[in-house]
Design a protein around this nucleic acid. Structure first.
Lengths: 346, 346
DNA sequence: GTGAAAGCGCTAACAA
DNA sequence: TTGTTAGCGCTTTCAC
């Protein structure tokens, strides 16, 4: 690759001229070179290198009607998830997959209710080919907006209204929260534990309710006193554990709806002199490196592939976009499997 | 706003036809309507509403040579900052400012060394008008890449080579780390503290070295044993505090380079039975809500306006882009002020 | 297999 | 003030 032209960026025209072919042929080569004889392909390739040619995106987009960009929408109440390693990993998964398909990630942060208008306008403006959105709420306007704008969208996490026989069917990617929870609780039961408590997450999130449901699937008529709700934070996990201990001193196992809360539980257990897993076995959920590596004893937990979920969201969307041109159906949802990872806490 | 045209999106042509004006006039109205008589403006506006017209971005971009998008580049080693509330707040500041100027945020995550090529290509492809990048390293290829691509770029955090008489002058936004540190240490000294220790951050980051420099500005020939380096994490702060206590049992104050480490220090101090601020006064840096609210006693710290820094980065870039068309100079760097926030720990 | 030519939807001179 | 017109750089029929 030698020096690029000093002034403006070279156009396809320039490449064609230098290679001694027509603009059409140059274009064919730039786009894969199918149906062009190899000597010409070579010539054009060389011209591209020598000139440092890079296709003008706007021009291409104007004729192809494809932007090569995808929006990632993060709604206001979810903005905090930005600081959540869970979310950041998901974004990275998305980024990887999009990158592999030469697709750009446009970040749309909603700072307030008024922003929905802006987003709607942006989506309608044809700036992106599709969208990815996270953790919808019951009355979330996002689905309506993307639909009206005709923007294919894939969601991260099961939307809260999906369980009901709601008409609005949307494709989403989520971990098998319920199944994973079931496995964790069964494992504790098979360990011989008799009083298995659950520290649930905030019950307005489907990941929390699904995990609670999984717990109940196994322990169908367990004492309600064995369930305490937290907020997916270490602190709330500690508080819930304290409550649980006060209410049911005889408990011999705890399944926490995430690792952070499990860490909080571990801390309180230690403070109260209960040995883990001797007196109380503890299982978490997520298998977040940062947490799992720091607990003592090392946390047994339900692993989910967060990075993979992100990739999957992107892949689903991209596939849907391809199919769209062929007029076939929208992508279906995917539930990703979980795995119980045995360590020392249970 | 009535029904949009069933099939494809309406074009300016359609709007013009419906309003009974020329495409040029319609365009003028859509772009602000300067120099168009109000009755016509009205007509066009109505047509726009009735048709649900939204300008085609690619077409506009093709002729204006402006994309209305800005890249936010996050280099591989910095990917972890994604999970750092500090960074997420900065991104939000950026997002707010860009949004206010109808500019989009394209997220460029570098996952590995090979990605630099990709970024270079992308930047050269004219997809964005400018770029924002974070915490450059000494030999970071990003500045060279953006420069070659002719993409104006503003950096977050002082690049590490800026202190030397390096040729590469780049505009950046950073807090007054050194000044803030000085203020914190002076405050402790004025409180009558005689043995003031410092828990520094990782010394390959300028924010850490600048704060250390600030500490030294005040305590010029202090015992080197009073300085311990951490890694900006709670855990590392705790470890550093333990070290410090072992080395200098007589210390009566600690200035930690960030709040997280101050929290760790507080924890160890409590474990070792030192009262705060009675025996040891503690000051942090950042004033991160999540941390400051949780410590006991409430943490006295140096506040910096993170959100504001993000906004400033975006504003600097945007202003630079405007000036670019007028051929004037690139934006200069900005150091944002810090404020000491007195609470209970010192 | 290759080239000529017709736009994609928009803005910006330039004329009127 | 308004309209006419010439592209922006690219892909894509359609002839050859």
């Amino acid at each position: 690759m030698s020096e690029p032209t000093p002034g403006a960026r070279p156009t396809l025209e320039a490449v064609a001229a230098r290679a001694g072919v027509s603009r059409a042929t140059a274009s064919r080569v730039v786009n894969g070179g199918a149906g062009v004889r190899s000597p010409l392909v070579e010539k054009v390739r060389r011209a591209v290198d020598e000139l440092g040619y890079v296709p003008n995106h706007a021009a291409r987009s104007l004729v192809t009607r494809r932007t090569g960009a995808v929006a990632v929408i993060i709604a206001e109440p979810e903005i905090r998830i930005f600081s959540d390693p869970f979310f950041s990993q998901q974004i990275r998964g998305i980024s990887k997959e999009l990158t592999a398909h030469d697709t750009q990630l446009v970040l749309l942060l909603l700072e307030g209710p008024g922003d929905y208008d802006r987003i709607a306008r942006y989506l309608a403006g044809g700036h992106v080919d599709g969208a990815l959105a996270f953790s919808l709420h019951t009355d979330d306007p996002i689905p309506a907006i993307t639909q009206r704008a005709g923007i294919p969208t894939v969601y991260g996490g099961r939307p809260s209204w999906t369980s009901a026989a709601d008409q609005r069917v949307v494709p989403y990617v989520d971990a098998d929260n319920r199944g994973g929870a079931r496995e964790a609780v069964r494992y504790l039961r098979d360990l011989g534990r008799r009083r298995i408590a659950h520290i649930a997450g905030p019950l307005d999130q489907t990941s929390a309710t699904d995990r609670l449901d999984g717990y109940r699937d196994v322990l169908m008529d367990e004492d309600p006193a064995l369930v305490a709700a937290g907020a997916f934070t270490e602190e709330s996990g500690a508080r819930a554990m304290a409550e649980l201990l006060d209410r049911c001193p005889g408990l011999d196992a705890v399944f926490a709806a995430n690792d952070l809360m499990a860490a909080g539980a571990l801390r309180v257990l230690k403070e109260r002199g209960r040995s883990v897993p001797g007196d109380v076995a503890v299982v978490g959920f997520d298998d977040m490196d940062a947490v799992v590596g720091a607990t003592d004893p090392a946390l047994t937990t339900v692993q989910q592939d967060v990075d993979g979920q992100g990739r999957l969201m992107a892949r689903l969307l991209l596939r849907g976009l391809d199919r769209e041109r062929e007029g076939s159906a929208a992508p279906a949802s995917v539930i990703t499997p979980t795995t119980l990872v045995r360590r020392d806490s249970a």
